[in-house]
């Protein structure tokens, strides 16, 4: 992404958020100790679209996600969700914002002491005063959406990893959120289940108008679902655009990531020491 793009999509830190943007991140910076993990990360996601955040391990994409859900506070910068800057909220106000979004965790993160149905019912029970019969119907609706109505009375340990993820998705959308975050939705899944999850994401976004942000390094799935894409490398955004723009990007870094070439701008070997010297103990 060149500079003019960046200024067009990202406004000054103190301006009101862009009207169409559901998620907006501005000049995010985060250090752990002396290590800079994120540096000047800025992007916006339009309402009702899917934005895919790509990047290798250690590129900072999970850290971005943790800022978006309010688990980390940035050293500087702002995160707007539905027009509210969550970096300035206290715990109680953050609780209010959190009801507006759901998240699909990498490992599902279902509570193992509860059944599948109780897991999906958990946020509904906690945040509404609906009678039990209504909750039971809502749980069935959400589970039907991910095709797992039959699993309602099973424990998470009794179903497969792919099913756990689908249940986790049902739980994430239990309260009809405006935003859903996905952390590596296809990690550890076979291509067919990945396809199922991708289709669910597309349906939710386009039929229900949910805004989605997906962190992934599965390129096939990324190009299938993305409306916009962002690529992170060493804590900075190195490329952003539509899937078409990314595919034809001249940037060798982007090309290496898309094609999965083992060596390129991102080196295969991480060692700093000279190979020969290291082996011979010099």
């Amino acid at each position: 992404m060149n500079d003019s793009d960046q200024t067009a999509t990202v406004r000054d830190l103190h301006q009101a958020p862009a009207p169409g943007a559901m998620i907006e991140v501005r000049h995010l910076r985060k250090c752990f100790g002396t290590k800079v993990v994120l540096e000047d990360v800025s992007f916006a996601v339009e309402r009702g679209t899917i934005c895919v955040v790509m990047g290798g391990s250690g590129s900072g994409k999970s850290t971005v996600l943790r800022h978006l859900i309010g688990a980390y506070k940035p050293d500087s910068g702002a995160v707007y969700l539905d027009g509210v800057d969550i970096t300035r909220l206290d715990a109680r106000a953050m609780q209010q914002v959190r009801r507006k979004f759901g998240m699909l965790f990498q490992g599902g993160a279902l509570l193992n002491s509860l059944t599948v149905g109780e897991n999906v019912a958990l946020p509904i029970r906690h945040h509404t005063e609906l009678p039990e019969e209504t909750i039971a119907i809502m749980v069935k609706l959400k589970l039907e959406l991910v095709g797992l109505r039959d699993a309602e009375h099973l424990k998470p340990s009794e179903i497969s990893g792919g099913m756990q993820k689908r249940v986790s998705l049902a739980r994430a959308i239990a309260l009809d959120p405006k935003i859903v975050f996905y952390d590596e939705p296809s990690a550890g899944l076979d291509p067919i289940v990945t396809g199922v999850i991708d289709k669910l994401m597309l349906d939710l976004t386009h039929k229900m108008g949910i805004t989605s942000l997906v962190v992934t390094h599965d390129m096939q799935s990324a190009f299938r679902i993305a409306d916009t894409m962002i690529m992170l490398h060493r804590g900075r955004i190195v490329a952003a655009g539509t899937p078409e723009e990314m595919r034809h990007s001249p940037d060798p870094l982007v090309q290496q990531f898309i094609t999965g070439a083992p060596d390129g701008p991102i080196p295969l070997r991480m060692s700093h020491k000279e190979y020969q010297a290291d082996i011979l103990g010099l």
Binding site: I69, Q95, R98, Q106, A109, L111, H126
Partner: peptide, 17 residues
């Protein structure tokens, strides 16, 4: 175990203390 498998983070994200 709930902490390392992100279950506690999931609770926080669901606005459950």
């Amino acid at each position: 175990t709930m902490k390392v498998s992100e279950e506690i983070l999931a609770l926080e994200v669901m606005a459950i203390h």
